[in-house]
């Protein structure tokens, strides 16, 4: 099972597009309603981060299988300014956008696996996975 789709994030409408992608794929894969909402919300948060901080990037979602488990993987990549202090952005309540400060720690809690890789001046890549229970 390998399904993949991606959306380029350049404006606010693309955020809705990316969400839609996650909504459809998670439903198709058989995730429960709560996990569907978690996945869609995580995508929304990641896409908004791209829009707000990098202006240019991409959200990929894919269904994949690994050692007997099936999961949905979200990959968020951008060529933005990068994150200088990952520890700081992973703290609860930290925000530079004036939101409710949910941001990346929130995405981490919504998903099962979460990896972030960032280089200042180069961009950021985030990979988040939700396993099908």
């Amino acid at each position: 099972m390998e399904t993949q789709a991606s959306v380029k994030i350049r404006n606010e409408w693309d955020i809705v597009q990316a969400r839609q992608l996650g909504r459809e794929l998670s439903k198709e894969m058989g995730f429960g309603q709560v996990d569907q909402a978690r996945i869609t919300t995580a995508i929304s948060e990641l896409a908004r981060n791209i829009y707000l901080y990098a202006q240019n990037g991409e959200i990929d979602v894919e269904a994949f299988g690994k050692v007997g488990r099936i999961g949905l993987k979200i990959i968020s990549t951008d060529q933005g300014p990068g994150i200088s202090d990952i520890r700081l952005v992973m703290q609860d309540g930290y925000t530079t956008s004036g939101g409710l400060g949910a941001g990346l720690p929130g995405v981490k809690r919504l998903m099962d696996d979460f990896k972030i890789h960032s280089q200042e001046g180069r961009g950021t890549e985030i990979v988040a996975i939700k396993w099908l229970r």
Binding site: Q33, V34, Q36, A37, R38, T41, E45, D92, G93, L100, G101, A102, P105, G106, R109, L110
Partner: peptide, 14 residues
């Protein structure tokens, strides 16, 4: 507010 939405908000820390 739906259960799934409420749970997601709590996960987000909201």
């Amino acid at each position: 507010i739906r259960p799934a939405v409420a749970i997601t908000l709590i996960d987000l820390g909201i």
